[in-house]
Design a protein around this nucleic acid. Structure first.
Lengths: 226, 226
DNA sequence: ACCTGAACACCGTTCAAGT
DNA sequence: ACCTGAACACCGTTCAAGT
């Protein structure tokens, strides 16, 4: 009986790269990327810091793996409902995922050795536009514009120190009270009339997104009718 | 004579907050934000780590000061040539400045105690749109869209590990050789036909920027003619 | 093949002591 | 008022030693 402890009995399952990555992502999700240290991670897994190096090369490799895991969470564009729908779904999917993995935003585009999920994803995104008739150059520009917007918006959302709109409003209120509002009337007005209003600003995201998508559609028509 | 050493003679001028911030920015510009440590900074200034704390409260305060200094470098919108020109100049100005201060990109929107230069800047940007007839809500959405694009584009440029297009092409070439290109044909095609071509892609930045500005102009007309 | 303790060269910051 | 050495609680990683 002691030889067959069953899957739940062992408090310390053997480490794998998968398990290490999962624990690292959970830690970063909960406590922020600045709390992710090799020492804390090993402690969370119930072992010594150096044991990690049997499954990952170093911290950089750890980050590469974490980012590839995040890319694997993004829904691939289906290609059935047209490029515009595909790009809108992509934008919304990334926003949702990055709200769970706020630490990932600055890293999604800065890893120089992309994993398989990252490559599959990028290939599908480009393919969605190319199949819809986008010339290579316009596809490149279009994706750069959309990605800039998507990651930039996420960057600004991540900058909010609290996840809920109510808490954010409260902080904005406190910030505003420390500022000489008569010197910055426009700033004060916009903060009061917009930032202090609750609501998760789904509107703001789609507003800019649609400006880009509609503009891209016009660019596509111009290029193809010439 | 020894009492009057002249400005160049003293190798260790007294530290001031100004001088500390300047040295910190220079260090971050040259070696990256991860190299900016209190210890290295104090060494650069020719003193002990703890001496820094006579001029700044802690590292967070140091970052606050650095970011406010970066905001002070951005040209304020003049307001004479219309909001569209003002916003385009703002976008180009930020891109130029963030190429010098790549470490700043992720921090511009995440500091919760904005300094005077930051407040003056934001107030001027909002004012530029409000004076042109933008309702508060549309100004807020418009700035959010533009800022997302501006910072997101900078984030992607910063992600490039080398500052010059030639070096970047070379790295992309090396990356591409390690990838099974037949599995990712769209990715390979775009990399070869776009990324590997030299040129600093001024075009890509203005392309997305104009999509947003033209779209914003249409939104403004719609709102004001109703 | 996988794990690990000790050690090294780093961090930011507190505290107490100097001038 | 400004500076600083020692100390504390942290880092990532190398190396040598275990099973």
């Amino acid at each position: 009986m002691a030889q067959q402890p069953g899957p739940r009995a062992d408090p310390r399952p053997p480490w794998t790269r998968q398990r290490v990555l999962r624990a690292a992502i959970d830690l970063a999700d909960q406590d922020g990327i600045e709390s992710l240290s090799m020492r804390k991670l090993s402690q969370l897994l119930g072992g010594a810091p150096m044991s990690l190096y049997n499954h990952i090369a170093n911290k950089d490799d750890l980050l590469d793996g974490m980012i590839d895991a995040v890319f694997s969470e993004i829904e691939l564009p289906s290609g059935e409902d047209g490029w515009k729908t595909a790009m809108r779904q992509r934008a919304i999917s990334i926003r949702t995922i990055l709200s769970r993995h706020r630490w990932a935003i600055g890293l999604m585009n800065s890893r120089t050795s992309p994993g398989p999920a990252t490559l599959r994803y990028h290939n599908a995104v480009i393919g969605s536009l190319r199949d819809a008739g986008f010339p290579v150059q316009l596809a490149a520009y279009g994706i750069a514009a959309l990605d800039s917007y998507i990651y930039g918006f996420a960057l600004q959302e991540q900058a909010l120190p609290f996840p809920t709109p109510a808490q954010t409003s409260q902080l904005a209120q406190a910030m505003l009270e420390q500022i000489p509002t008569d010197q910055y009337p426009h700033f004060a007005e916009l903060t009061i009339e917009d930032v202090l209003q609750p609501g998760d600003d789904h509107g703001a995201y789609e507003f800019g997104l649609d400006l880009l998508l509609d503009g891209l559609e016009q660019s596509l028509h111009k290029q193809t009718t010439h």
